[in-house]
Amino acid sequence: MSYILGYDPDTLREQVDPVRCEGRLDEIGEQRSLPALLERVWLLKVLDRLDDALVLSEQSVRVARMAGTRKDLLRARILHATVLQVRGQLAAADQELTACAEEADGQGWAGIAAFAYQHRGKTRYDGEDYDAARTDFKRALFLRQESGAPDEQLESTLLAIDASERRRMRSSVAS
């Protein structure tokens, strides 16, 4: 079940029902499995509880490193980077997402690479580098199409491409 109701067309942030997200957070409780940790990180992030999300995302990376697969570790690192991005730590998020995207690309893991490129695009969008953001979103779209991603993922990427193009046009007119 998706907790995402849509995406803000200007910030590209997920729009969620906070009551449902809080309810899910309560359901998960203190479970320590990697999937539960990752879900808790995401829920805390979208609920804007960023300090808690950061601590838990660091823990999820450690758990994935010790007990998960390489794919698990990449997912945990990407999610950790998204928390950094929302906290405004754009350089650190960009660096981590670049490393994750390159590793996933090198392994041929299109779905994970698309996840990394999508979020690196959002990081660059937040940093007002709209050309680079657009390039990342287009790469994410290609990879998502290649991996047979669901329509909602394709739509979110198309929305991001449109937003970066609008912002790029606005910034070029303003300069």
Rank of each mutant, 00 (worst) to 15 (best):
A116T: 06
R62D: 04
Q89G: 01
R62Y: 02
E165M: 12
L84D: 01
I161G: 01
L43G: 03
E103Y: 14
L73T: 01
R139S: 06
V19I: 15
A91E: 11
Q118T: 07
T98E: 10
D8N: 13
A93I: 09
R13K: 11
V83T: 05
S164A: 15
R70D: 07
L50H: 09
R24W: 05
I112F: 01
S147I: 14
E155S: 14
Q153M: 12
E27K: 14
R167K: 14
C100P: 03
W42C: 00
L74C: 00
L38H: 02
D151Y: 12
P150S: 06
A132N: 05
S172D: 11
L37I: 05
E30D: 15
I78V: 14
V173Q: 12
I28K: 11
E39L: 14
R13G: 00
T98K: 12
G23W: 06
M169Y: 10
I28Y: 09
L50P: 01
G106A: 14
Q31T: 08
I4Y: 00
Q59M: 11
D52G: 01
V63Q: 00
R120L: 08
H119W: 13
G148H: 09
D131F: 13
E165Q: 13
W42S: 00
A76K: 05
F142S: 11
Y117K: 10
D8S: 06
G111D: 05
A76Q: 05
T98P: 01
D17C: 07
T69G: 07
E22P: 01
I112K: 05
M1I: 10
Y3E: 01
F115Y: 08
A92P: 01
R49H: 06
K71H: 07
V173D: 09
D131H: 12
V19T: 13
D52Q: 13
L43A: 08
L25S: 00
K138Q: 15
Q153F: 11
G121T: 07
A91V: 12
Q59D: 07
G121F: 07
R144L: 11
A67Y: 13
A140W: 08
D94M: 10
